[in-house]
């Protein structure tokens, strides 16, 4: 986890907001480093984590997790981490092999129009079964992490189906079980008439539902080796208040973490 990001968001593994829906999005940049942050954050906090890794293999997250100080393999063995390896399981479903008929959670691959009900059931069952710690304690509040949700659009699932899925996940995880949700969505370029089905529509729908939106983009002035991009933090309290503060930070990702600084205060500049 990144200590500077914890300071910005005012949270630590010992005390963080529950029932939080955090949306991480990017546009022509890569925000997956934030997923690694949240994965190590919640594992350190002792929460039960359900991770839908739809675009990378388990060993990728494991290797990065080692550098950030958590062992994913151990967490998986202990039952703290439930990891869905989307890539590995999907080949069977796409090629329609008999052995994969049993996997209901990947039903969206076999028939993309069907929706994500099967995937939701998988999520629900994995957070409800509360296996115990070694010393008899149960894990902390459940957390759902998804990397990344917009790849489902490439597989033919509609935006509406994905928004329904996230609504159900929010209802179960955040409202009922008082847990958290972190979802990564990768957006496309902004277009003039942007009301068509696409990742931008999906992102807008999710922003309506979320409590905290982190949006990562490249610098508007171009490529820079020392500043990898800018991140906009948008605190959205649920519903009524008009004032939803937004702040922008610059960041640089390095081997063992990421550093965040206010605009114009990069060490390369000062």
């Amino acid at each position: 986890m990144f200590p500077e990001l914890n300071n910005i968001l005012n949270s630590t593994p010992d005390s963080f907001k529950s029932s939080d829906f955090i949306l991480v999005s990017d546009r022509q940049a890569d925000a997956s480093f934030l997923i690694h942050h949240y994965l190590s954050f919640y594992l350190r906090a002792g929460c039960k984590v359900c991770f839908l890794g739809l675009v990378q293999s388990f060993s990728h997250y494991s290797a990065v997790g080692q550098r950030l100080g958590v062992s994913l393999a151990q967490a998986r063995e202990k039952g703290q981490l439930v990891f869905l390896e989307g890539l590995k399981d999907s080949i069977g479903a796409i090629l329609q092999e008999e052995s994969s008929q049993g996997t209901q959670h990947l039903s969206y691959l076999r028939s993309p129009g069907a929706g994500l009900k099967g995937l939701f059931r998988f999520v629900e069952s994995s957070v409800r079964q509360n296996g115990d710690h070694d010393d008899g304690e149960s894990w902390g509040p459940p957390v759902l992490l998804i990397d990344d949700l917009s790849v489902l659009l490439s597989l033919g699932v509609t935006v509406g189906a994905i928004l329904d899925f996230t609504l159900y996940c929010q209802a179960t995880m955040c409202t009922e079980l008082q847990g958290n949700m972190v979802i990564l969505v990768r957006c496309e370029e902004e277009d003039a008439d942007d009301d068509e089905e696409g990742a931008n529509l999906l992102q807008r729908g999710l922003v309506h539902q979320c409590n905290l939106a982190l949006h990562v983009e490249g610098l508007p002035t171009g490529y820079c080796r020392d500043i990898h991009g800018q991140m906009q933090v948008w605190w959205r309290q649920s519903g009524e208040t008009m004032y939803n503060p937004r702040k922008t930070f610059h960041f640089k990702v390095h081997d063992k973490g990421a550093s965040f600084f206010a605009r114009g205060t990069s060490s390369a500049v000062l």
């Binding site: 022509q28 983009e217 490249g218 610098l219 002035t221 171009g222 490529y223 990898h228 991009g229």
Partner: peptide, 15 residues
Amino acid sequence: LAAGCGTTATGNKHL
């Protein structure tokens, strides 16, 4: 000539 960044330039290119 100015190609984008990794992270393509989203804003004004006419610097």
